[in-house]
Design a protein around this nucleic acid. Sequence first.
DNA 1: TCTGGGGTCCTGTGGCTC
DNA 2: TCTGGAGCCACAGGACCC
Length: 395
Amino acid sequence: MFVSAPALLHIDMDAFFASVEQVRRPELRGRPVVVGGEAARRSVVSTCSYEARACGVRTAMPITQAQRLCPKAIFLPVDMAAYVAVSKRLVALYRQFTDAVEAVSIDEAFLNVAGSRRLFGPPQAIARRVQERVYSEHGLTCSIGIGPNKLLAKLASDLSKPGGLGMLSKADVHGRLRGLPVHELWGIGPVTEKQLAVLGITTVGTLQDVPLRLLAAVFGGGAYALKQLAFGRDLSSVSSTAQLPKSVGREVTFGEDTSELMLLRATLLSLADDTVAQLRAKGLAARTITLKVRYSTFHTVTRQATFVRAVSSTRAIYGAIERLLMQIDLGARWVRLVGVSVSGLCGNACQLTFDDQWKEVALAEAVDRVRAKYGKRALRPAACALLPAKATSMC
DNA sequence: TCTGGGGTCCTGTGGCTC
DNA sequence: TCTGGAGCCACAGGACCC
């Protein structure tokens, strides 16, 4: 159902990580900048500047390929802490226009400005002021979409990149939207796009026209959701209350595939320790532990274990990971990635209160204090010493 | 030839209980 | 006592997002 006039803004920062780097280092402005993992390791492009995009570099492209396409590009590591700090300042800026701000990712936010008209004018005027202030106060550009719901607002900002201001209304659903390729719709990725193409559906218009029963034959219950997307229907509202995370985890791709069990175990211990640190920093504990293993063939398996009560100690979580690892028949297979994640999160207070658990919690808190004072690597599990030098960045 | 990391959400399956 | 169905939950995998 649509409101009478567009009142939602979707703000999307342009090439966010690369732009932040160009602001921090003005000498990089106007030059191709690629932000991603280390070139020596197997990694991909996180974000690149529009100058790098002109060379054909794209997000998620292997760094080695980006180097071939754009040898003059400046390659920088991801400095997530810096980007998070900028992101928080941007959200604070948005809140000066409305309380209804939902940060959906580090570089995107929805604003409901329906109640801000009297103070700041119509949505277009608010959007322009936001763009001006983001640029004057942070040196960054953003694209803003205006729509009657989140789906259309997001689509409008996508169509306005970079640095533009766009609007989509209910009327556009039967006009401008029809000619767009289906992958422009939020939620339709490469797999669904390919499945739709088999049915001869490549544009939003053809998706609107195809009978629901034909879609249902391929997508089952998902057919209705696809139809809703095609007609720009979205009933979700802007939620300004912070949500607890659903899961937390760490994973790592080895520089070279390995079949060494000792290395796998030491890496998993390190990842479990990092995950616990993250968990405890958020004041959370977890019931479900998940082990992820990706083989050299790219085939990925996961194994889960669920505790009766939530835990937040490295000993408990790594203990579960070791048991899960034994469930996987590794044989002599080569492994390229391992990961640890925890879910079923709740506040620390939901943990067991037996004496031995209290001791563990007290120990973990002491470790937290040492790390807060002397740095993350001041205390690490002894088994991390088994990791080769090039992998010690994890420890 | 190469395919990261950190997440969310959904679906199908199988076990368990009533 | 046995059986089948419904409902719930855990688990595994996959798709998608940035």
